[in-house]
């Protein structure tokens, strides 16, 4: 199980004014800025659950993942994953955990993937038979068998991501942190990664936290989501419940002679609003629909959850 209680993380950075004057000034004195990346975050995740962590850039998603993977220390608060404090970096914990960062390579670029895998086999002390089985399973499912002997730096972005996935899952981790695994991938590569993760999750039942800006990743993989805004959770619950929260609203896309604009209108006021629109404008096209999950999540990220 993964349990987090009142986790807080602050970073100290330095602000510098732009231009030469600012640079000269910064030589003598720098302005210290404390950024609170996480503010007292608490949650629990059970074994076998896959949870989507959603938030705007700089909301604190990656910081949370880095703390849980043991890369950075929290400022305060508690977290236990499989009974370990991640930042103590117990080897027993690290053998059961994996972090995949879409924007950062963790395998060795100058080596063919198979060489990196062999090194990881030794690092994680994976038995020969299990190693062979895993390589076969992962390479087949990810359809990357032909690229395993090529230097990683010579592979395409999509192929590299698959190699990263293979490297991260070679030791069959019980906890997986996926930080934007489909970033920069083309649509078919995104689909392949999602398909693979879905199968992997159902077969091996790890605890998985997935952060992604692509709602398709979240919609397809995560029955539960956590929305984080400025270091605090604004929602933690079922993805299906999110849609119900704004079920009372309708979205209108209106095209007039001059422009196209969108409106959110409470269902009860729909008739009045439409009559107003037709009176005030020459309407060329009108589309009425329920808000999409993307719309709802964007609205929650921007304005929080509306309470009745």
């Amino acid at each position: 199980m993964l349990e987090v209680k009142n986790l807080t993380k602050s970073f100290t950075t330095f602000r510098k004014e732009p231009g030469l004057k600012g640079s000269l000034k910064a030589l003598l004195r720098r302005e210290k800025v404390i950024k609170n990346a996480l503010k007292s975050v608490s949650f629990k995740i059970e074994q076998g659950e896959i949870v989507g962590l959603i938030g705007a850039n700089g909301a604190g998603k990656t910081t949370l993942v880095k703390i849980l993977a043991g890369i950075v220390h929290p400022t305060s608060g508690e977290a236990t994953v499989l009974g370990f404090k991640p930042w103590e970096r117990d080897n027993e914990y690290r053998k059961q955990m994996s972090l995949i960062m879409g924007q950062k390579a963790q395998v060795w670029w100058d080596l063919p993937a198979l060489d990196s895998f062999l090194l990881l086999k030794e690092i994680y002390q994976i038995e020969d038979s299990l190693y062979k089985k895993n390589i076969e399973f992962l390479a087949d499912t990810l359809m990357i068998k032909d690229q395993l002997k090529t230097q990683v730096r010579k592979l395409s972005l999509g192929e590299r991501m698959k190699i990263e996935l293979m490297a991260a899952l070679l030791h069959r981790p019980r906890v997986i942190f996926l930080d934007e695994p489909t970033i920069g991938l083309d649509i078919s590569a995104q689909k392949a990664v999602r398909e693979f993760m879905r199968n992997y999750q159902s077969e091996f039942k790890p605890i998985t936290i997935l952060t992604s800006h692509y709602m398709e990743d979240i919609k397809e993989l995560c029955p539960r989501i956590m929305i984080i805004k400025e270091g605090q959770f604004v929602y933690d619950g079922a993805l299906s419940e999110v849609q119900k929260m704004m079920g009372d609203e309708k979205r209108l896309t209106v095209t007039t002679k001059e422009k196209t604009f969108k409106l959110s209108v409470p269902r009860s006021e729909l008739g009045v609003k439409m009559s107003e629109l037709f009176t005030a404008n020459e309407i060329l096209d009108l589309n009425i629909h329920d808000p999409s999950i993307e719309d709802i999540i964007e609205s929650i990220m921007n304005y929080g959850i509306k309470t009745p």
């Binding site: 043991g70 890369i71 690290r94 960062m101 690092i123």
Partner: peptide, 12 residues
């Protein structure tokens, strides 16, 4: 470059 992270993730 941030690749130092891998040494913190691997059990070594």
């Amino acid at each position: 470059e941030g690749t130092f992270n891998r040494y913190l993730l691997y059990p070594l």
